[in-house]
Amino acid sequence: MSVLVVIPARYASQRFPGKPLVTLTGPDGIAKSLVCRSWEAATGAPGVDRVVVATDDDRIAAAVRGFGGEVVMTSSGCRNGTERVAEAHAALGGGFEVVVNFQGDAPLTPPWFVPDLVAGLNADPDAGMATPVLRCDGAALNGFLEDRRAGRVGGTTAVFDDRRRALYFSKEVIPHTAGRYAPSDPTPVFHHVGVYAYRPQALAAYPGWTPGPLEGLEGLEQLRFLEHGHRVLCVEVEARGRAFWEVNNPEDVSRVEAMMAAAALT
């Protein structure tokens, strides 16, 4: 299947303005922008035909062109990354069988997640979109709970049915568990990884759907699919020993740099 990867990037983030241009220093001592590291992660995914960055900001566009990336300029009216990806796909003339939204704040996204999502869509023809979930171990779950106690918006969690169809996504830690888990213990909580693989028809329809109250409350774009009755497939993926985190807040920069060093990612 032909696969387009789009990295949506905007400058005016409420929690972290200018986030795509913040620098992350690798274990080799080289500093690169967040959007550059996300681009490198996306281009490392197998089975991808084209990677573009979609932005409405000239500063981000100049940075991407500076490291040799391809830019698609989109409007400032896009309300979230999925709308920006839809606009970029349309601007390129369509023609791809799968369009992947690869988050510009997640340079630790393992490259094998993309083919896993494509395979998931192939196996579930009724799903318009697929997204990866990782089972939390005790250390990851405790990190989520610590962020919430400190009032920080950290990672997103997901719950799904026995066919892996999503029931809900939340920035709270769901489902509730009273269990106590050692750092390496598996838990019943799944970390939602913000990568999305869309069928082109579902992606094109998305901007025309009215945002629902849950999307507004949680600030999670994928909830629009659920609020309009569309199936979202949760594909369980394996971390293969790699730690994963997004840059959601300024304090996440050092956390991601430490994870890059641990994985020897340059």
Score class of each variant (00 low, 15 high):
L21M: 09
D56Q: 05
P125V: 08
A62M: 04
D126G: 13
R255W: 07
L214P: 06
A9G: 05
G179F: 00
W39K: 07
A150E: 15
L226Q: 05
F102L: 02
R37D: 04
V195D: 02
D58R: 13
L4C: 07
R199S: 09
P8K: 04
A61S: 12
V71Q: 01
R79M: 11
Y11H: 13
V51Y: 01
R59H: 10
F96Y: 15
D28C: 13
V6Y: 02
D58K: 12
I174L: 10
A61Q: 09
A9M: 05
A130G: 00
P200V: 10
Q222F: 06
P115F: 06
R242V: 14
G44S: 13
V195K: 04
N122Y: 09
V232P: 02
R135V: 06
A178R: 14
A262I: 11
V153R: 10
S254E: 15
A258T: 14
A86V: 00
I7V: 12
R59L: 14
F169N: 02
G229M: 03
L167P: 01
V51T: 09
G216H: 14
D56P: 02
V189S: 03
M73Y: 05
Y196K: 10
V72R: 12
R231I: 06
V189F: 05
G208M: 07
R10A: 13
R50M: 10
D162V: 10
Y181G: 11
V22L: 10
L265Y: 13
A150K: 14
G29N: 09
S2K: 15
Q201N: 13
A262M: 12
K32Q: 13
G77N: 14
